[in-house]
Protein backbone atom coordinates (compact mmCIF):
# COMPACT_ATOMS: atom_id res chain seq x y z
CA UNK A 1 0.00 0.00 0.00
CA UNK A 2 1.10 3.57 -0.75
CA UNK A 3 2.71 5.54 2.02
CA UNK A 4 0.22 7.51 4.10
CA UNK A 5 -0.24 11.25 3.50
CA UNK A 6 0.36 12.03 7.15
CA UNK A 7 2.50 10.09 9.60
CA UNK A 8 2.39 11.40 13.11
CA UNK A 9 4.81 10.00 15.68
CA UNK A 10 4.89 10.71 19.42
CA UNK A 11 3.47 14.14 18.75
CA UNK A 12 3.52 16.50 21.69
CA UNK A 13 2.29 20.05 21.78
CA UNK A 14 2.83 22.34 24.74
CA UNK A 15 1.38 25.81 25.05
CA UNK A 16 2.22 28.55 27.53
CA UNK A 17 -0.29 28.66 30.36
CA UNK A 18 -0.79 32.39 30.71
CA UNK A 19 -2.91 31.96 33.81
CA UNK A 20 0.17 30.82 35.72
CA UNK A 21 2.55 33.36 34.22
CA UNK A 22 4.78 34.88 36.89
CA UNK A 23 5.13 38.68 36.96
CA UNK A 24 8.49 38.49 35.27
CA UNK A 25 9.65 35.73 33.00
CA UNK A 26 7.99 33.14 30.86
CA UNK A 27 4.71 31.37 31.47
CA UNK A 28 5.11 27.68 32.30
CA UNK A 29 4.17 25.30 29.50
CA UNK A 30 1.22 22.93 29.73
CA UNK A 31 1.25 19.84 27.61
CA UNK A 32 -1.96 19.74 25.58
CA UNK A 33 -1.09 16.77 23.37
CA UNK A 34 0.82 14.05 25.16
CA UNK A 35 2.37 11.86 22.51
CA UNK A 36 0.10 10.86 19.63
CA UNK A 37 0.80 8.22 17.00
CA UNK A 38 -1.32 7.70 13.91
CA UNK A 39 -1.32 7.67 10.10
CA UNK A 40 -3.77 9.22 7.68
CA UNK A 41 -3.91 7.15 4.46
CA UNK A 42 -4.28 9.08 1.21
CA UNK A 43 -7.84 9.66 0.06
CA UNK A 44 -9.28 8.54 3.38
CA UNK A 45 -11.62 10.23 5.79
CA UNK A 46 -10.57 9.81 9.39
CA UNK A 47 -12.90 10.74 12.21
CA UNK A 48 -11.55 12.38 15.34
CA UNK A 49 -13.90 12.32 18.29
CA UNK A 50 -13.42 12.90 21.95
CA UNK A 51 -14.15 14.91 24.99
CA UNK A 52 -14.59 18.65 24.71
CA UNK A 53 -11.21 20.17 25.57
CA UNK A 54 -9.30 16.97 24.83
CA UNK A 55 -7.08 18.65 22.23
CA UNK A 56 -8.74 17.88 18.90
CA UNK A 57 -8.54 21.43 17.56
CA UNK A 58 -5.00 21.74 18.89
CA UNK A 59 -4.09 18.57 17.01
CA UNK A 60 -5.64 20.10 13.89
CA UNK A 61 -3.62 23.28 14.32
CA UNK A 62 -0.46 21.25 14.71
CA UNK A 63 -1.16 19.13 11.60
CA UNK A 64 -1.52 22.21 9.39
CA UNK A 65 1.41 23.74 11.28
CA UNK A 66 -0.29 26.76 12.75
CA UNK A 67 1.41 25.49 15.89
CA UNK A 68 4.87 24.06 16.21
CA UNK A 69 5.03 20.72 18.01
CA UNK A 70 7.24 20.57 21.07
CA UNK A 71 8.27 16.97 20.41
CA UNK A 72 7.71 14.11 18.01
CA UNK A 73 7.36 14.36 14.27
CA UNK A 74 4.82 15.07 11.57
CA UNK A 75 5.56 13.77 8.08
CA UNK A 76 3.37 15.16 5.35
CA UNK A 77 3.55 13.79 1.83
CA UNK A 78 6.96 12.29 2.47
CA UNK A 79 8.39 15.44 4.00
CA UNK A 80 9.13 16.17 7.64
CA UNK A 81 7.26 19.36 8.42
CA UNK A 82 7.56 19.24 12.21
CA UNK A 83 9.79 22.28 12.53
CA UNK A 84 9.65 23.86 9.07
CA UNK A 85 9.90 27.63 9.35
CA UNK A 86 6.97 29.73 8.16
CA UNK A 87 8.62 30.76 4.89
CA UNK A 88 9.20 27.14 3.83
CA UNK A 89 5.70 26.19 4.85
CA UNK A 90 4.10 28.76 2.62
CA UNK A 91 4.41 26.78 -0.62
CA UNK A 92 2.87 23.79 1.16
CA UNK A 93 -0.05 25.74 2.60
CA UNK A 94 -2.26 25.21 -0.39
CA UNK A 95 -2.32 21.51 0.39
CA UNK A 96 -2.70 21.90 4.13
CA UNK A 97 -6.13 23.37 4.65
CA UNK A 98 -8.15 23.75 7.79
CA UNK A 99 -11.80 24.66 8.26
CA UNK A 100 -12.22 26.28 11.64
CA UNK A 101 -14.60 25.32 14.40
CA UNK A 102 -15.91 28.84 14.96
CA UNK A 103 -17.24 30.03 11.62
CA UNK A 104 -17.97 33.58 12.70
CA UNK A 105 -14.53 34.47 13.90
CA UNK A 106 -12.78 32.67 11.06
CA UNK A 107 -14.17 35.18 8.56
CA UNK A 108 -12.80 38.70 8.39
CA UNK A 109 -15.67 41.07 9.28
CA UNK A 110 -14.53 43.68 6.76
CA UNK A 111 -14.35 41.51 3.69
CA UNK A 112 -17.07 40.36 1.41
CA UNK A 113 -17.64 36.65 1.03
CA UNK A 114 -16.26 36.81 -2.52
CA UNK A 115 -13.03 38.39 -1.35
CA UNK A 116 -12.71 35.89 1.51
CA UNK A 117 -12.94 32.98 -0.91
CA UNK A 118 -10.76 34.68 -3.52
CA UNK A 119 -7.85 35.62 -1.23
CA UNK A 120 -6.29 32.15 -0.88
CA UNK A 121 -6.80 31.48 -4.58
CA UNK A 122 -4.88 34.61 -5.51
CA UNK A 123 -2.17 33.89 -2.99
CA UNK A 124 -1.64 30.38 -4.33
CA UNK A 125 -1.39 31.21 -8.01
CA UNK A 126 -4.96 30.29 -8.88
CA UNK A 127 -5.92 33.89 -9.60
CA UNK A 128 -7.04 33.34 -13.17
CA UNK A 129 -10.77 33.07 -13.70
CA UNK A 130 -11.32 34.21 -10.14
CA UNK A 131 -14.98 35.07 -10.55
CA UNK A 132 -15.85 31.70 -11.99
CA UNK A 133 -13.89 29.86 -9.30
CA UNK A 134 -15.63 31.79 -6.53
CA UNK A 135 -19.00 31.15 -8.12
CA UNK A 136 -18.28 27.45 -8.36
CA UNK A 137 -17.08 27.29 -4.76
CA UNK A 138 -20.31 28.89 -3.54
CA UNK A 139 -22.43 26.67 -5.68
CA UNK A 140 -20.77 23.50 -4.42
CA UNK A 141 -21.75 24.23 -0.83
CA UNK A 142 -25.26 25.25 -1.77
CA UNK A 143 -24.99 28.99 -1.30
CA UNK A 144 -26.70 31.37 -3.75
CA UNK A 145 -24.46 33.56 -5.90
CA UNK A 146 -25.97 36.70 -4.41
CA UNK A 147 -24.04 35.96 -1.21
CA UNK A 148 -20.76 36.89 -2.91
CA UNK A 149 -21.22 40.54 -2.04
CA UNK A 150 -22.38 40.00 1.54
CA UNK A 151 -20.44 40.36 4.77
CA UNK A 152 -20.18 37.66 7.41
CA UNK A 153 -22.74 39.27 9.72
CA UNK A 154 -25.32 39.13 6.96
CA UNK A 155 -25.27 35.33 6.91
CA UNK A 156 -26.77 32.71 9.18
CA UNK A 157 -24.51 30.46 11.24
CA UNK A 158 -24.73 27.55 8.85
CA UNK A 159 -24.16 29.77 5.85
CA UNK A 160 -20.97 31.12 7.44
CA UNK A 161 -19.82 27.60 8.07
CA UNK A 162 -20.33 26.77 4.42
CA UNK A 163 -18.28 29.81 3.37
CA UNK A 164 -15.40 28.35 5.37
CA UNK A 165 -15.85 25.00 3.64
CA UNK A 166 -16.04 26.63 0.21
CA UNK A 167 -12.90 28.62 0.87
CA UNK A 168 -10.81 25.62 1.86
CA UNK A 169 -12.06 23.30 -0.86
CA UNK A 170 -11.67 25.89 -3.62
CA UNK A 171 -7.92 25.33 -3.47
CA UNK A 172 -8.31 21.62 -4.28
CA UNK A 173 -5.92 20.75 -1.45
CA UNK A 174 -4.45 17.35 -0.72
CA UNK A 175 -5.48 17.56 2.91
CA UNK A 176 -8.21 19.32 4.77
CA UNK A 177 -8.84 19.34 8.47
CA UNK A 178 -12.56 19.81 9.07
CA UNK A 179 -13.15 20.99 12.63
CA UNK A 180 -16.77 20.42 13.57
CA UNK A 181 -18.07 21.61 10.22
CA UNK A 182 -21.53 20.10 10.07
CA UNK A 183 -22.89 20.57 13.58
CA UNK A 184 -24.40 23.91 12.57
CA UNK A 185 -26.13 22.58 9.46
CA UNK A 186 -29.55 21.05 9.01
CA UNK A 187 -29.45 17.41 8.01
CA UNK A 188 -30.19 17.90 4.35
CA UNK A 189 -27.42 20.49 4.02
CA UNK A 190 -25.16 18.14 5.99
CA UNK A 191 -25.92 15.48 3.44
CA UNK A 192 -24.82 17.79 0.65
CA UNK A 193 -21.52 18.64 2.34
CA UNK A 194 -20.74 15.06 3.29
CA UNK A 195 -21.49 13.87 -0.23
CA UNK A 196 -19.14 16.56 -1.53
CA UNK A 197 -16.35 15.41 0.81
CA UNK A 198 -16.90 11.77 -0.09
CA UNK A 199 -16.77 12.61 -3.76
CA UNK A 200 -13.58 14.66 -3.44
CA UNK A 201 -11.96 11.90 -1.42
CA UNK A 202 -12.91 9.23 -3.94
CA UNK A 203 -12.21 11.19 -7.12
CA UNK A 204 -9.48 13.66 -6.24
CA UNK A 205 -7.75 11.71 -3.50
CA UNK A 206 -8.55 14.38 -0.89
CA UNK A 207 -7.54 13.28 2.59
CA UNK A 208 -9.81 14.48 5.35
CA UNK A 209 -9.46 14.60 9.11
CA UNK A 210 -12.98 15.05 10.34
CA UNK A 211 -13.39 16.30 13.89
CA UNK A 212 -16.97 15.87 15.04
CA UNK A 213 -19.14 15.19 18.02
CA UNK A 214 -21.81 13.64 15.88
CA UNK A 215 -21.02 9.96 16.03
CA UNK A 216 -23.77 9.07 13.63
CA UNK A 217 -22.16 11.26 10.98
CA UNK A 218 -18.75 9.82 11.82
CA UNK A 219 -20.03 6.30 11.34
CA UNK A 220 -21.49 7.23 8.00
CA UNK A 221 -18.50 9.15 6.65
CA UNK A 222 -15.27 7.80 8.11
CA UNK A 223 -13.26 4.69 7.48
CA UNK A 224 -11.28 4.92 10.71
CA UNK A 225 -11.84 6.75 13.96
CA UNK A 226 -9.53 8.19 16.58
CA UNK A 227 -10.97 8.69 20.06
CA UNK A 228 -9.20 11.28 22.19
CA UNK A 229 -9.32 12.20 25.83
CA UNK A 230 -7.11 14.58 27.81
CA UNK A 231 -4.50 14.84 25.11
CA UNK A 232 -4.02 11.16 24.39
CA UNK A 233 -5.55 8.73 21.94
CA UNK A 234 -7.60 6.26 23.95
CA UNK A 235 -8.69 4.16 21.03
CA UNK A 236 -8.13 4.12 17.28
CA UNK A 237 -9.63 1.60 14.95
CA UNK A 238 -11.73 0.94 11.89
CA UNK A 239 -15.15 2.55 12.24
CA UNK A 240 -17.34 -0.52 12.31
CA UNK A 241 -15.10 -2.28 14.79
CA UNK A 242 -15.20 0.77 17.04
CA UNK A 243 -18.97 0.99 17.08
CA UNK A 244 -19.61 -2.72 17.27
CA UNK A 245 -16.92 -3.67 19.76
CA UNK A 246 -15.65 -0.59 21.59
CA UNK A 247 -12.60 -1.58 23.61
CA UNK A 248 -12.46 1.29 26.08
CA UNK A 249 -14.94 2.34 28.73
CA UNK A 250 -14.80 5.94 27.52
CA UNK A 251 -15.75 4.92 24.00
CA UNK A 252 -18.65 2.91 25.37
CA UNK A 253 -19.81 5.93 27.40
CA UNK A 254 -19.69 8.08 24.29
CA UNK A 255 -21.76 5.67 22.24
CA UNK A 256 -24.25 5.28 25.06
CA UNK A 257 -24.75 9.05 25.25
CA UNK A 258 -25.72 9.52 21.59
CA UNK A 259 -29.26 10.88 21.49
CA UNK A 260 -31.19 8.96 18.87
CA UNK A 261 -34.08 10.77 17.20
CA UNK A 262 -36.79 8.89 19.03
CA UNK A 263 -38.83 9.55 22.14
CA UNK A 264 -37.34 7.96 25.25
CA UNK A 265 -38.69 9.38 28.49
CA UNK A 266 -36.06 7.82 30.72
CA UNK A 267 -33.04 8.76 28.64
CA UNK A 268 -31.96 11.71 30.75
CA UNK A 269 -32.32 9.90 34.06
CA UNK A 270 -29.05 9.40 35.83
CA UNK A 271 -28.20 5.70 36.07
CA UNK A 272 -28.42 4.54 39.69
CA UNK A 273 -24.74 3.61 39.84
CA UNK A 274 -23.56 7.08 38.85
CA UNK A 275 -25.75 8.95 41.33
CA UNK A 276 -23.83 10.80 43.98
CA UNK A 277 -24.61 9.70 47.53
CA UNK A 278 -26.81 12.26 49.25
Amino acid sequence: MAEPLFSVRRLKVALPDMTRKPLIGRAPLVEILKGLDFDLPRGSVTGIVGESGSGKSTLGRALVRLLEPSAGSITFDGRDITHLPEAELRPLRRNLQMIFQDPMSSLNPRRTIASIIAAPLKQNGLGDNLKARVAEALQRVGLPQSFASRYRHELSGGQRQRVGIARALALSPKFVLADEIVSGLDVSTQAQILTLLEKLAAEMGLTVAFISHDLSVIRRLCRQVIVMREGVIVEASATDALFDKPQQAYTRDLIAAIPLPEIDAGWLDIPAAAKAPT
Binding site: R90, R94, M98, F100, S105, L107, P120, N124, R167, A168
Partner: peptide, 22 residues
Protein backbone atom coordinates in the same frame (compact mmCIF):
# COMPACT_ATOMS: atom_id res chain seq x y z
CA UNK B 1 -6.84 36.28 18.49
CA UNK B 2 -9.64 35.82 16.00
CA UNK B 3 -9.48 32.77 13.79
CA UNK B 4 -9.56 34.80 10.59
CA UNK B 5 -5.96 35.75 11.22
CA UNK B 6 -4.93 32.08 11.31
CA UNK B 7 -7.15 31.49 8.34
CA UNK B 8 -5.02 33.98 6.40
CA UNK B 9 -1.91 32.04 7.36
CA UNK B 10 -3.56 28.89 6.04
CA UNK B 11 -4.17 30.82 2.83
CA UNK B 12 -0.44 31.40 2.56
CA UNK B 13 -0.09 35.03 3.60
CA UNK B 14 3.03 36.23 5.41
CA UNK B 15 2.96 37.90 8.80
CA UNK B 16 3.29 41.48 7.59
CA UNK B 17 0.81 40.92 4.82
CA UNK B 18 -1.72 39.64 7.35
CA UNK B 19 -1.10 42.56 9.65
CA UNK B 20 -1.71 45.09 6.91
CA UNK B 21 -4.37 43.30 4.86
CA UNK B 22 -6.46 41.60 7.50
Amino acid sequence: RMDYVENARIAGYGRIGIMLRE
